[in-house]
Amino acid sequence: MNILVINAGSSSLKYQLFRMPDEKPVCTGLVERIGQADAFIRHKQWEGDAEKVTERTGGLPDHYASLHEVLAILATPGTGVISSPDDIAVVGHRVVHGGEQFADPTIITPAVKETIRTLFSLAPLHNPANYTCIEVAEKTFPHARQVAVFDTAFHQTMPPQAYRYALPESYYREKRIRVYGFHGTSHKYVTQKAMVWLQKPDAKLISIHLGNGCSMAAVDSGRSIDTSMGFGPLAGLIMGTRSGDIDPSVVFHLMESEGKTEAEISALLNKQSGLLGLTGTNDMRDIRKAVRASDAQATLACDLYAYRVRKYIGAYTAVLNGLDAIIFTAGVGENDVDIRESICQDLDYLGIRLDLEKNRTATPGLRAIQSADSRVAILVVPTNEELEIAQQCYRLPGT
Rank of each mutant, 00 (worst) to 15 (best):
N7T: 13
T152C: 02
G365P: 05
L323P: 04
I108Q: 09
G35K: 10
D348C: 01
N2S: 07
V380A: 08
V53R: 06
K193N: 11
D247G: 04
T115E: 14
Y312T: 00
A368V: 14
A296E: 15
A368T: 08
E135A: 05
V250K: 05
D151K: 07
A377Q: 10
A296K: 15
R178Y: 08
Y171A: 06
V95Y: 07
T140L: 00
A301E: 06
F120T: 08
I343S: 08
T140P: 03
S266G: 05
E135I: 10
P364M: 02
T157V: 01
P124S: 07
S273D: 05
R164Q: 12
I352S: 02
K14D: 06
P397C: 04
I352F: 07
C214R: 04
T76A: 15
T361D: 13
G92H: 07
D87G: 07
L268Q: 11
D86T: 11
G351R: 01
D338L: 12
L122R: 00
I225P: 01
P364D: 14
P21E: 01
P61E: 10
Y15P: 03
D22P: 01
Y394V: 03
A123D: 01
R19M: 09
S243Q: 05
G59A: 08
R353W: 01
H187G: 10
